[in-house]
């Protein structure tokens, strides 16, 4: 994706700067930007290392197993098709826990494993099943409990209260999750009627 977006950005902004005579500010911004990237990376480095270390402690304890059990009733409601398949349920909930704790690197492999297991149970191999759709929808919702990256960015820019956004983020995540569920259900319903096939 960035192989398309990045050159477009460079071409339109650099050629516009040449035509409009904004070359001085473009030149200074090029060097300013590399400096900004370094500052942000340094700040991210601190936060991500700290959080990753803490989550490593969590992953060595039984917390994840326990949280997986807490999620079970929710998973039964969201994935009715998986009720006879505890193995896939387990994979799905481990992916969700990894997402909630902000372990993006752990969440993706777990998620892909769950998708592959669901594909085995899928009757039509070239169409997403209901549970797969629900699973992808959950993964496109940011259900991370602490938005560490944003906090790091805010911190690097000298915010007075970098963590002040945590609660608003939760509220918005819940709103968006409901919207996700509704739009997904609406599409599924029409799909079953045979109106939408793509």
């Amino acid at each position: 994706m960035l192989n398309i977006v990045w050159p477009i950005f460079i071409i339109i902004s650099f050629s516009y700067a040449i035509f409009s005579g904004n070359l001085e500010s473009l030149n200074s911004s090029i060097f300013q930007s590399t400096e900004d990237a370094i500052n942000l990376t340094l700040s991210l480095l601190g936060t991500i290392c700290l959080w990753n270390g803490i989550m490593q402690i969590a992953s060595k304890t039984t917390i994840i197993d326990k949280l997986t059990k807490v999620l079970n009733p929710i998973i039964r409601v969201l994935f009715p098709d998986l009720k006879n398949n505890p193995q896939i349920q387990q994979e799905v909930s481990m992916n969700m826990i990894a997402n909630i704790l902000g372990l993006g690197n752990a969440a993706t492999p777990l998620g892909l494993k769950a998708m592959k297991s669901m594909q085995k149970e899928n009757n039509k191999k070239d169409i997403l099943s209901d549970s797969m759709m629900m699973f992808i929808v959950i993964n496109t919702a940011s259900i991370q409990i602490i938005p560490t990256t944003v906090i790091a960015i805010r911190n690097s820019l000298g915010s007075e209260n970098p963590t002040s956004i945590v609660f608003p983020v939760w509220i918005v995540t819940i709103c968006a999750a409901m919207a996700r569920n509704t739009s997904n259900k609406a599409i599924n319903k029409n799909y079953k009627k045979g109106e939408i096939i793509i």
Partner: peptide, 15 residues
């Protein structure tokens, strides 16, 4: 680094 330069250029060029 790559993206900061591109986004910075979008802003500083005026586009």
């Amino acid at each position: 680094i790559g993206l900061f330069v591109a986004i910075g250029a979008l802003r500083s060029s005026g586009i």
